[in-house]
């Protein structure tokens, strides 16, 4: 088994085919989208491949150490950040092919007009634990 991160971006990924912001969909189209996402996660729980799923708020900030006895320096939020992560799903699957297959399914979630969004999702393998048997 290997863990993969399916990463969804607010910004930074190539534009999807069906590129209409959600507040321009009909309420029914939004419901259909939510249903698809819920069903997808439920299906992965059933197959024993679901690990975690989280969404992030769009606004954050950068923080760094500023020396002994000083409060940390903060910067942002940056309205124009090129790459902005919206959330993720972690899956634990048997193969890279399976991870790609699932990301493809997730990207087929319906959007405006009830048609698939074809959203680009980033698929990143986790660094694994070193194996016990090495020779």
């Amino acid at each position: 088994m290997a863990k993969y991160l399916l990463l969804k971006h607010y910004r930074g990924a190539p534009a999807p085919v069906n590129d209409v912001p959600m507040d321009q969909w009909t309420p029914e189209e939004i419901s259909a989208h939510m249903q698809y996402m819920n069903d997808f996660a439920a299906r992965l729980e059933e197959t024993g491949e679901f690990v975690d799923s989280q969404a992030l708020a769009p606004e954050g900030m950068f923080v760094r150490y500023d020396g002994e006895g000083r409060p940390p320096v903060t910067d942002g939020p940056f309205a124009e950040t090129k790459d902005l992560i919206a959330g993720w799903m972690v899956i634990d699957v048997d193969s890279h092919e399976r991870a790609v297959e699932l990301a493809g399914d997730l990207s087929a979630a319906p959007g405006a007009g009830g048609k698939p969004i074809h959203e680009w999702l980033e698929v990143r393998p986790f660094m694994a634990e070193p194996p016990t048997i090495t020779e």
């Binding site: 507040d23 969909w25 009909t26």
Partner: peptide, 17 residues
Amino acid sequence: NLAERDHLTRQAARLNT
């Protein structure tokens, strides 16, 4: 939270459509 975000997005969508 997501429940509120979805609710508010739906409100925007309802008025926009």
